[in-house]
Design a protein around this nucleic acid. Structure first.
Lengths: 237, 237
DNA sequence: GTTAGCATGTAAGGAGTTACATGATTTT
DNA sequence: AAAATCATGTAACTCCTTACATGCTAAC
């Protein structure tokens, strides 16, 4: 999960470990706690050894064409301890694509892992997004049905707190299925069988204040690594 | 977590591992998947070695006063493989009470662990219930505030999916806080400063169809270890 | 005779956490 | 001078899962 999250974040721009953790918390804080450094740094090490990322020491430069990156007027290591900046390799990008595309129903069972997949949806293709959403929906529907059965089987001889837990769990599952239905409708709406239409996903589903997805440019083969990342239309939330 | 769940379930009646797993799934299925046998059996072994539970081989009898337990007309191992039935010891009961009472805010952060605590609320005292609920509420409120800040800080340069994840996470947190508020109000309602009142907790909070908590007899000092367990209502499952 | 359900276990491994260790720089 | 923040890393450990191994009985 951490590996997937790192690969996903590094799609945006190179980063060092400490910043990675902060950004991860900002992006995934709604679904899970921050990853510890005790798992972050060893994971980065392993990923570097596997060639998924490369380490760029900002003082020396690796061997990439990073000449105009750090002009002396803004030294990247102004002080502090030397930081290691990691950049995604083509292999890393490929591995990320595989992790996203290969997300099966087993993955869909894990709340947090689904959240990580979802957080990086804009880095994958619409078909993969749809598959992940549908796999998750099937899982949550299965859970919902299990709870319903348990509740109807004479409440499975539960006490009041056990019952309340089931009731709340059932509501939670029902709510998530509704959410997934909206998301799936959105995704389907943006590819209406033929050449792309780019309507307003997330809109017209009964949530007036929600931010509609702007035309996220299909990144599945975006080629350029878009170091502009400078806001397409996200500012006036 | 598994240990707590086992201790909680064995409060009800002695059980063997296989049944324990089924009951655990029925009780906790709304919040997490089934525990695997690969963790269940070693955990039972460890708990037995620590004296939290005792193993009763239904064919032989341990050394307890279990003479009238298994009359030959209904042999407990009618066939199948020999099953090991585990019974809670006083030490196990004490350990359970400590695990419940010692649930701090660190525990409250874990979704599933809170669920397990909640599932066994009727086996602990009202003060402990209240402390666990309030610790959980504080945690969820903190998360809610973090998300709100992240969303107001110009959306922390998130893309549309990142934004949607935050929005959904915020709604989830808000909903859980409301739920916890109801539960806390219920708990407080049943001990109105002086001698117990035993009103209807879970009622009058705007949910008409909800099952009100029946007068769960405060088990915090139930004293008797109820060795009657000779099937109080388990036969017509 | 083979599948399904009941029943118990072990060994290896995954994916994280906590605690510890180090060290520079900025703020109080 | 102390504390906070930035920054990286290791070692030990927790807690659970998967895969494997065994064996018995009932039903198809």
């Amino acid at each position: 999960m951490l590996e997937l999250a790192i690969l996903g974040l590094l799609h945006e721009s190179p980063m060092h470990g400490y910043e990675l953790r902060k950004r991860l918390l900002a992006l995934l804080g709604a679904i899970r706690a921050a990853f510890s450094y005790g798992s972050l740094y060893p994971t980065l090490k392993r990923m570097r050894q596997r060639g998924l990322i490369v380490e760029e020491t900002p003082g020396g430069g690796v061997d990439k064409g990073a000449a105009a990156k750090a002009p002396p007027e803004k030294p990247l290591l102004t002080g502090r301890r030397a930081r290691k900046v990691y950049r995604l390799t083509p292999e890393g990008k490929e591995h990320f694509a595989q992790l996203m595309a290969g997300a099966d129903s087993a993955h869909a069972a894990d709340e947090a892992l689904f959240g990580v997949h979802f957080a990086f949806f804009s880095r994958t293709d619409p078909a993969t997004r749809l598959r992940i959403l549908e796999a998750r929906r099937r899982r949550v529907e299965e859970r919902r049905e299990r709870i319903r059965e348990a509740l109807s089987r004479t409440a499975e001889r539960l006490d009041a707190y056990g019952l309340e837990l089931q009731r709340h769990g059932l509501e939670t599952a029902e709510r998530e299925v509704r959410w997934l239905n909206e998301l799936i409708a959105s995704e389907e709406g943006r590819r209406p069988r033929q050449h792309t239409d780019f309507g307003e996903p997330f809109a017209e589903t009964g949530r007036p204040g929600a931010a509609p997805v702007q035309g996220t440019p299909d990144p599945a083969e975006s080629a350029g690594d878009s170091n502009k990342q400078g806001k397409g239309g996200m500012r006036d939330g």
